[in-house]
Design a protein around this nucleic acid. Structure first.
Ligand code: SF4
Ligand code: SF4
Lengths: 159, 159
DNA sequence: CTAGTCAAGAGTAATTTAGTCGGAGATAGA
DNA sequence: TCTATCTCCGACTAAATTACTCTTGACTAG
């Protein structure tokens, strides 16, 4: 189906939390640790730990002083962390179909003669754009961002 | 992850096939059976059978003369069958998160205090619109439809 | 030195998806 | 009438993915 995994959900939740924890632009960002986030959101600590580690590996967050008082901090500005990036960090390259990009490594046998592929790739691309259009910063606002999806048929008036 | 299931893929493939089999507007539409489609696309007959049955139950296709020479025909015009409809028929109501619509029956414990929910619902809605914007007819064209996704931030200049 | 923390990988359990089987009903054509 | 071919349905098994756990190690503030 078309659903986020729990890990993805956890990741976004955690990022939102970390981001909000380190306020607007206050220079000394607060360092927040795994346990804190996990307890706040009732998620299994061990699992969240893995998720955060993955995010750290992708430089989306950074770990600070690796001992007591240690924890994580955003790796870049909230507005520069898009949902698409988070998802890809957690679940690898996201593809609606088995035949992701133009490259070979996809599994489907037919590919070339598949009449359905091109349209689906379009959709995939659109979804990606969509996901890349919302950032952590957007999620911080009470009023969530306005996303307009416009779908034009080929014969569309749009020239 | 964010991927179509095989069944969904099969469904779309089959629909594309059925649609193309019954030509443009020729009134006596050709009846095509499960086996034919399955062999054409190297998919397990039994499984495709189930998929088609499901589609039939949702009136997306219709079964004709239930014996030899029997098979399926589109239930309505290709342009009136959207990808979203097909997906929902196959996999039930599609939701990016565990907390689909405003209703209760979602599983997540937090919900109300979740800071991440509203934005995600927006995204979900956008994806739905997107998926609802492409029809089987669109997939029939060699040149697939043009889909434009425009993502505007709240403070966007666009007024 | 030690308690608290991140890092990494292997291992297990739960859930979902994919695919199979067997039996029932319908009907076109011989 | 009989039979081969097809849809229909539900239960079943198998495979794959996802969710979660455990263990071990390394680092460091106090
Ligand atoms: S069937 Fe067509 S679309 Fe589905 S995976 Fe194979 S190639 Fe891509
Ligand atoms: S966490 Fe927030 S977003 Fe994710 S499911 Fe629960 S409520 Fe919906």
């Amino acid at each position: 189906m078309l659903k986020f995994s729990k890990k993805a959900d956890y990741a976004l939740l955690a990022l939102q939390y970390i981001a909000s924890a380190q306020g607007g632009g206050a220079l000394p960002p607060r360092v927040v640790n795994t346990k804190e986030i996990a307890e706040e959101h009732f998620m299994p600590v061990e699992l969240l730990a893995k998720v955060l580690q993955t995010l750290a590996r992708h430089q989306i967050i950074e770990s600070h002083h690796n001992g007591p008082k240690g924890g994580y901090v955003l790796g870049r500005e909230p507005k520069d962390i898009t949902i698409a990036q988070v998802l890809e960090a957690i679940e690898g390259p996201l593809g609606i179909t088995d035949c992701y990009h133009e490259k070979e490594e996809s599994s489907c046998d037919q590919m070339d003669r598949c009449n359905i592929r091109t349209p689906l790739l379009k959709i995939q691309e659109s979804i990606y754009t969509l996901l890349n259009g919302m950032s952590i910063e957007d999620m911080l606002r009470d009023e969530s961002p306005l996303i307009i999806v416009e779908s034009l048929k080929p014969q569309g008036v749009h020239s």
